[in-house]
Amino acid sequence: MRQFGELEAVVMDVLWSREGSATVRDVLGEMQRTRSIAYTTVMTVMDNLHRKGFLSREMEGRAWRYEPVKTRERFTADLMVEVLEGAEDRTGTLMHFLDAISAPELRRLRRLLAAEDSESSP
């Protein structure tokens, strides 16, 4: 399972650095430059990522084309919002080094994301 987790990160990296969609074969080609890996493994990993909602896909010809649902920056920003919110409601889910810093950071981040959203949807 741990290895699968690592592969998921590698696959996302490949897709994020490509910009635009890619087939399993495209991703496989890039991954095989640094390691030996089977087509079915990459296919399983990408299917898992799609099932978890991190990738969207479209049938093109006879192959799925996969694309990240969010950019890497947006993905990280959304994760950060959750992390900082966790400091607010103090559920014990996460433990912050200094929870007082989370409130101003959260406000700042929300402002940025709101500006970004209003830019992208006219």
Binding site: M80, L84, L94, M95, L98
Partner: peptide, 13 residues
């Protein structure tokens, strides 16, 4: 490390 400009340090228990 998480690439982000918000200041945060935390642990996931």
């Amino acid at each position: 490390v998480l690439d982000h400009e918000a200041v945060a340090v935390y642990c996931l228990p």
